[in-house]
């Protein structure tokens, strides 16, 4: 056998060895699967402040008193409004960075004096959805428009409404 042929055989052997190292078993294949879930924490909604229209002196004509989310008040024509006013406010807790929807369950309610006298209130919020903070906190406010009747009977009027906050 010449030297040249020996060298050729050696190269061939090296090629086969290289091929054997680079080829993986082809008859089977394995993979790793991933599984994930995000467990949410329950949402809590806590009232921070009541919607308070303050004190109102009615007139001979019906009018409205509106409380905005920034606690400001617009007193209707003929009415006299004074005293502290506040918008309704709620604090929310849940899973951090999750988006939640906000809804007023009963946007029209009635305030009563415990007897037969009442006033209607229209409720609204500009927050229909929000993303909770990195600590899972959020808040929203509720504005209202009170319909004061002509010569509305004096007294303390109150009523209730409910809100819902849900994960989206």
């Amino acid at each position: 056998m010449t030297k040249k042929s020996v060298q050729a055989l050696g190269l061939t052997a090296m090629l086969f060895a290289g091929a054997a190292l680079s080829i993986e078993p082809a008859h089977a294949a394995s993979a790793t699967g991933d599984a994930t879930v995000k467990i949410l924490s329950a949402i809590t909604v806590t009232k921070s402040s009541d919607l308070d229209f303050g004190k109102i002196v009615p007139s001979a004509a019906a009018a409205t008193v509106a409380i905005a989310e920034d606690n400001s008040r617009v007193c209707g024509s003929g009415l006299s409004c004074f005293g502290t006013t506040t918008a309704g406010a709620f604090a929310v807790t849940g899973t951090a960075n999750e988006t939640v929807s906000v809804a007023i369950d009963n946007p029209s309610i009635t305030l009563t004096d415990g007897g037969s006298n009442s006033m209607a209130v229209a409720l609204a919020t500009t927050t229909s959805a929000m993303t909770l903070s990195g600590t899972g906190a959020g808040s929203f406010k509720v504005a209202g428009t009170l319909n004061v009747g002509a010569n509305q009977v004096a007294g303390s009027y109150s009523g209730q409404y409910s809100v819902s906050v849900s994960y989206q």
Partner: peptide, 25 residues
């Protein structure tokens, strides 16, 4: 797919795991 039991009081958070799957001629 998978079927997961969610126990009452499971702490909130992100859960992750891995499994092996293999295919053979």
């Amino acid at each position: 797919g998978g079927q997961m039991i969610v126990a009452a009081g499971t702490p909130p958070g992100i859960y992750a795991g891995q499994y092996n799957i293999s295919f053979e001629y």
